[in-house]
């Protein structure tokens, strides 16, 4: 149960302000989710390189010699940029999977939040404004991003339970609602080899989409089939390397409002989240239809 915000920029000149705009939207949704907050941001990428965002409860210890240790094990050059409890590891794209295994050995306390060419995820327990300040979210730039404020329902208030969830390269998902068949679906997806680390229903939703895409579906097709295969209430906002999608369940009780101008597409759980966006007064503002997939890409 939560607040969601999302922003997909069409106008490149706004990219340096993406973090600032998303942060303002995120903080506005504090009432809907005071327990934790998170953001996925798609910044500049470099072909052939991957970024892996990791989180640690002891960042000073874990991050100090991480670059050297990881480079030695992988036999390549990895660099580490620490941001509070998170760090972004830069490494060759073909080493991403072996880096996960190496990290499990080298730093068992680390949690991998995401990997991909462009995605970075930052999420922590606490009020959205405090989380945003810890990571200097407002200084970040990028082409699109998704944020989430969480009111935990049936799983713990932990960093791991915070959104966004990423279960595939450059993929992420945030959710408002509650899924009712996540336990059986989690068992099925795990049996199919998907990595699901928490007992959170949303992670199952994210893994479901990643699984469908692994099986060859496009994001649009995966979102379409989620309407049949996921039970319960959901408004999802998802990100991919160059795309941004929205889907609501057929009952569509959980709120959603969107705005589009020549410069951007924006999503908010409430209109309040959108009021400071440039040109909002003349934007096309609408509610996404139930059981309908919306998708934009660069």
């Amino acid at each position: 149960m939560c607040g969601i915000v999302g922003l997909f920029l069409k106008d490149k000149s706004l990219e340096p302000q993406l973090g600032a705009m998303l942060t303002d939207m995120l903080i506005t949704m504090t009432d809907r989710g005071p327990d934790s907050a998170g953001i996925a941001i798609y910044g500049a990428g470099q072909g052939g390189r991957a970024k892996m965002t990791v989180q640690s409860a002891q960042p000073d210890n874990d991050f100090a010699t991480l670059a050297e240790d990881l480079s030695a094990v992988l036999g390549t050059s990895a660099s580490v940029r620490a941001v509070d409890t998170h760090a972004v590891i830069d490494l060759p794209a073909d080493k991403a999977e072996s880096a996960r295994a190496a990290l499990a050995e080298l730093r068992p306390g680390l949690r991998v939040m995401s990997d991909g060419e462009r995605i970075e995820i930052f999420k922590e327990v606490g009020l959205p404004k405090d989380v945003a300040a810890r990571f200097s979210l407002s200084a970040m730039s990028g082409s699109h991003g998704i944020g989430h404020t969480r009111m935990a329902t049936e799983s713990a208030v932990t960093t791991q339970g915070a959104h966004p969830f990423s279960t595939g390269a450059d993929q992420c998902l945030v959710h408002n609602g509650s899924l009712s068949n996540h336990n059986s679906l989690r068992r099925k997806l795990r049996a199919a080899g998907m990595r699901i680390e928490s007992e959170n229903d949303t992670e199952v939703g994210a893994a479901y989409l990643s699984w469908r895409m692994r099986e060859g579906a496009t994001l649009g097709e995966a979102l379409e089939s989620s309407i049949d295969d996921l039970d319960g209430f959901f408004t999802f906002v998802v990100g991919t390397k160059d795309g941004f999608g929205v889907v609501r369940d057929p009952i569509a009780c959980k709120p959603a409002v969107m705005a589009e101008t020549d410069q951007y597409v924006a999503f908010g759980s409430e209109y309040r989240a959108l009021v400071n966006l440039p040109g909002i007064d003349s934007a096309r503002v609408w509610e996404p239809e139930p059981a309908t997939v919306y998708f934009w890409s660069h």
Partner: peptide
């Protein structure tokens, strides 16, 4: 009484 909304109304 009366409530008039010039724009759209949500659910």
């Amino acid at each position: 009484g009366t409530v008039v909304i010039d724009g759209d109304a949500s659910q």
